[in-house]
Computed example of a mutant assay.
Amino acid sequence: MARIERAPPIAGTDFMVSRLAASRLALEVCPQRAAPLLALEFEGSSCAMVASVLSGTAVPSRGVWAQPYQYERLFELMSVDPLGRRARAAMIEQATLLRAHIASISGNARTLHVVDTGVFGSIGHYLALGLSDKEVRPVMLFRANYKRRAGLVLPPATGLVCDQDDYTPWKPRSVSRLYWPLIEAFFEPSLPSVRLYRRADDGEVLSDLQKPDWQASLSSDSDSIRAGAFDYLRTLNPGSEAAILERSTRAWRALRRRIVYPTSEDVLLLGVSPRSLDFGVDDLVIFGEPVSNASPLRRIAEVRDSIWPEGEIRRLFPKTAGIWLHLIEVSRTIASAYRAVR
Rank of each mutant, 00 (worst) to 15 (best):
R234V: 00
G288A: 10
N237C: 13
T249D: 15
R247K: 07
R304I: 11
D305F: 10
D266A: 11
L316R: 03
G311Q: 07
R315V: 02
E289G: 08
D283S: 13
E246C: 06
G288D: 12
L255S: 04
R275M: 12
D305M: 14
S240N: 07
R234G: 04
R234H: 06
A301K: 13
E302Y: 04
S292C: 08
E241S: 08
L270Y: 07
R275V: 14
T235K: 03
N293S: 12
G288V: 06
R250M: 11
A243S: 10
A294M: 12
P296H: 13
I307Y: 03
S292Q: 14
S240F: 09
E310G: 02
V291H: 15
D282T: 07
D282Q: 11
L236N: 01
V260C: 15
R275F: 02
E289K: 10
R257I: 01
T263Q: 09
F287M: 12
A242Q: 01
P274G: 10
L297P: 02
A242T: 00
R253E: 15
D278L: 08
L233G: 07
V303S: 04
R299M: 11
G288Y: 05
R256M: 14
V303T: 03
R299T: 03
E312V: 10
W252I: 02
L255Q: 04
R314Y: 01
V260P: 06
L268Y: 00
R250S: 08
N237K: 01
E265A: 15
E312F: 11
P290T: 13
R257F: 01
S264C: 02
E265S: 13
V267N: 04
I313L: 11
S292P: 00
V267Y: 03
A294S: 12
T263E: 15
I259F: 14
V267I: 13
R299G: 04
I286P: 01
W308I: 03
D282C: 06
E265L: 13
E310K: 00
A251L: 14
